[in-house]
Nucleic acid binder design. Sequence first.
RNA 1: GGCCCCAUCGUCUAUCGGUUAGGACGCGACCCUUUCAAGGUCGAGAGACGGGUUCGAUUCCCGUUGGGGCUACCA
Length: 472
Amino acid sequence: MSAPRVRFAPSPTGYLHVGGARTALFNWLFAKRTGGTFVLRIEDTDKQRSTDAHTQVILDGMRWLGLTWDEGPYFQGEYGDRHRADAESLLAKGLAYRDYLTAAELDAERAAVEARGGTFRFDRNTIHLSPEETARRKAAGMPFAIRFATPDEEIAWMDAVHGRISWQGRDLDDFIILRSDGSAIYNMAVVSDDIAMEITHVIRGDDHISNTPKQIALYRALGKEPPIFAHVPMILGTDGKKLSKRHGATAVGDYQDMGILPAAMRNFLALLGWSPGHDQEIATEAEMIERFALEHIQKKAAVFDPAKLEWMNGQYLSNFPAEELRAPVERQLGILGVAHDGRDLLPVITAVKARARTITHLAEQVASRIDGSRVVRDEKGNALEAKMGERFSASLRLCQEALLAVAADAWDAVTLEAAMKAVAETHTLKLGDVMQPVRVALTGGTVSEPVPELLAVVGRDESLARIGRAIG
RNA sequence: GGCCCCAUCGUCUAUCGGUUAGGACGCGACCCUUUCAAGGUCGAGAGACGGGUUCGAUUCCCGUUGGGGCUACCA
């Protein structure tokens, strides 16, 4: 068998949604795994809703996720002539027919049926013009749509994730393949393109299952062998409904803005509906490619859990070397408007990255270490001060005194830890009562890296300044 | 309504007829510790229901219930 050719075919009518991104990821993984070709095709035939801006956002989202394509992007809108030729070839073979009924007349027909409480369904035997009227319109050169004469036979396929799925032709109506303006309808365009682009495996969302029998019928009518279909499950919101705007962030760009790393997003998305078959969840790109198989894709829809994504992102943050985090952190600092010129961020990032869950969060912490104006006292910080009362500033004064005694060239975590412990010992204070006030004075909150490291990262002058300010 | 798809802890999942039904997130407890959203240990927590098939069903078949998708001269 020749190498597989797969495609991801988004329509540029919106942003790149996580569902689409996951579909793209599965296609990409499959292509990598099999040594196949990953084709990107932009389905921009809906002129009303498609925009170049959306196309750009989708391309950016894929690049951000590292889902590089081998061919394309092709733009479906450029192949109108081929779509039309394919539709007309069906007409020539007698497998499709002209329908002179106008869209308005069809709408009226539909409205009438629905007004009676019925369910409208196109039926070639009941919904049609009289032969005379058809002849008259044809003679008058009126525009017509082309309908596919769906054969009354079973259409079945072995879905790579679902197994055998079958439909009866009679449950499909004679759907339109070419509009009266000469443009192809979705199913016709897709089949025409997939044939022309020699696509061997169609990996797409579950919601396309009902399009598949129509497309297979079209392949047969065109005398072509259908590709292998793999319908991957949908992604749902926390309430079990199809993921949508009201669930919050659904666009890949939203997660980029929230400070999610591409590697974490990719890893998380891969595990939504697919499993490597073992217990290791954090996996490199190479490991995922190595284990990827269509057969291991889940049939059931998956609920998107933002909490687990954040956890996973936190894992990547902890494990990534600080150097790799510097660029995204600097970018975020820029967004926050924090000057960091000439400042070595690596020690700061190293100190705080284990406790951060997003780049945004990480950058905020870095900002608070290098810029005193970025320190905001949180509830816990206030609560601690209130709880300790007078002892709070008393403790800080003792620390201030001890820290002043530490020379600038001796200002490192080891020396500082010794100095802090000495304060506790000589004044018979609990270590926590000495450390916590300093943490609150320096960060505004009760959560941070170990205090000696914190002092080292913030620096001597700034640390003492913040302590001075806290004492008041 | 019709057609189609689906069904293991709250969530993501492992299991491909025999397991004390395993792991992860989240949750709880404990340990470590100056604190923690870090690390470690432990715990609670699932086969929707009813029939078959079988020596034996989470697993295979049927039905019920529940959820989802499609049902356009949209993609």
